[in-house]
Structures are given as structure tokens and as C-alpha cells.
Amino acid sequence: MSAFLTVGNLSAVLRGNRQRVLRSVSFSIDTGEVLGLVGESGAGKSMIGKAILGILPSAIEIIEGEIVLDGQDLQTMLPADRRRLIGATAALIPQDPLTALNPSRRIEPQITNRLVDILGWSKADARVRALELLNEVHIDNPERVMASYPHELSGGMRQRVLIASAFAANPKLVVADEPTTALDVTVQKQILRLIRDLQQRHATAMVFVTHDLGVVSKVCQRLSVLYGGKFVENASVPDFFAGPTHAYSRALLAATPKYTDPDASLVPVDEAVIEAVAAEVAAADEEWRHAR
């Protein structure tokens, strides 16, 4: 079957600046597949997720390329149609559960509002669905949680609520934007397992943005390594961990702590490798400018 999401040759710039922040990014994801986007901070991995969901900051402008979601090109759609398509088929699991819930509203409407307002469910049906989801994310006493305000819940609980909310409308695509980064290490593992379980049970396509290669090895089937908004390596997870082909990927892998060997010393990414990959990005830019 064809890919549920295809991103083709996507380039974006900071408004009023010719320097690209996304550099001809292309990938596609099938239903039930998880793609990891890996890179250091500022590499543009979150930006790709935001571009897919139509929530790029106003300072960033897509200048080229296409994002095809469920067979429809988002770039050519009317904004209102695009919003509705994204709301109905895709969802976001945000990075920081402490800031991603509206502090002045109870939990229930924050899970059910998309179902009721966008998809036209009845309030009663949406409530049943929300209770079901809270059970699925292993929240005890879901009735009480639904009537709570965000400040009454712990960070882990809030992230569970957000995951439940993301899967509420049976999305075909979920963008997980560093969903465990802001959590306690003890909670991280549970949340990660939860996301993977839900993803497998619902056969959701998923873009998993992270800087943690350890997380990628647990959740993803394929991964793409970014540097400066450009893909430097695309590989399947087994191949990648067996031996990355790109020097930068190798350096990144060597810089990741290994749970199997916690005493091994970490290797910082070599400056020569950074220079080489930066030069590669600059060369690609030159070629791109030439082609235009």
C-alpha cells in the first residue's frame, strides 16, 4: 500500500533570510511504521514534525516541496481544509506535559474536544471514548482524573493524558516530539512502552523526534539522522546499529551512553567530523542554489 505520509523535497527558510533551515528533506512513512528523526538540538528535527502538523512558527516559511498526508498535498489546500484534515487524521504528543495542557480547563474537555468539535461526536460518546483511553494508558480512577485540573496531576500522569488525547480520534499518523525528554528517568521507560504499545495496537504511522538513539532502538523501525536541517543518513534501525555508514552518524552513536556497558567512557563528537558534515551541507546548498 502507498505511504500514508510523504514529505518530498521540503525546504524552509527563516523569513527575510535566504539561509535554509530545512534542506530538501524527503521521506515517507507507511501505516504502522515508526520513523525516528535524530539529531542534535537545532538540527531541525522538531521543525519537520511541526511542518507536517501545520504549526510552524510564523517566522519560518516553507519555500519548496510537498507534504502529502492521506493522499492530499497540504501545501496546495485551503487553510481551513488543511486544518480539518490534520485534526482528523494526525495528532501530536508534545514534549513538555507541564505546559501542554490548558491550566484553566478540566482534563475531560481537553481529551474530548477534538472528537466533539471537529469530528462531530456526541458528548456522551466522546466521554465513553475518553474513559476507555484513560484505561488504555493505565490511569487508575479515570473518572476522577477527567474531572481534575492539570495542576492536580503529576508530570507522568499529564503525559499519559496527552497520549490518550493524541490517540482519541484514532489518528493514522502521530508525531511524537521528544515525548519523554521532560520526564523523570523512572517514568520515561513506562511512557515509552505505552506509546509503542498504543502505536502497535492501532497500527499508527509515527514520526518519533528524539535526540536519544537509545530510545530510537526501542521504538523505531527506521531512522533518519539530521544535521543542519539536512538528512545525512537514512537507515533501518538494525542496519544502523550494526554500523552507520555516515561518519557523523558513527560519531553520534559513539557519543550515546550504552545501557549494556555503563562504565564505558563517552566519546564526544570529533570536531573534524562536524566540519566535514557542515561542509557537506554547504555543498548541498550550493548545488541546490545552482539548480534553481
Partner: peptide, 23 residues
């Protein structure tokens, strides 16, 4: 973040301002 999140749910700019941000 919660305002951004509600955008991804398919809400219009007006709705986002009035019912997420304003309260």
C-alpha cells in the same frame, strides 16, 4: 504549548484565541 496543541486538533485561529488563550 497548549495553544499549539489545540491548533493541531483542527481548530481555527479564532477559536484558539477565544477559548484556549483568552481564559
Amino acid at each position: 504549548d497548549y495553544v499549539t496543541l489545540s491548533r493541531t486538533k483542527g481548530y481555527s485561529e479564532n477559536h484558539v484565541i477565544l477559548s484556549e488563550a483568552l481564559p
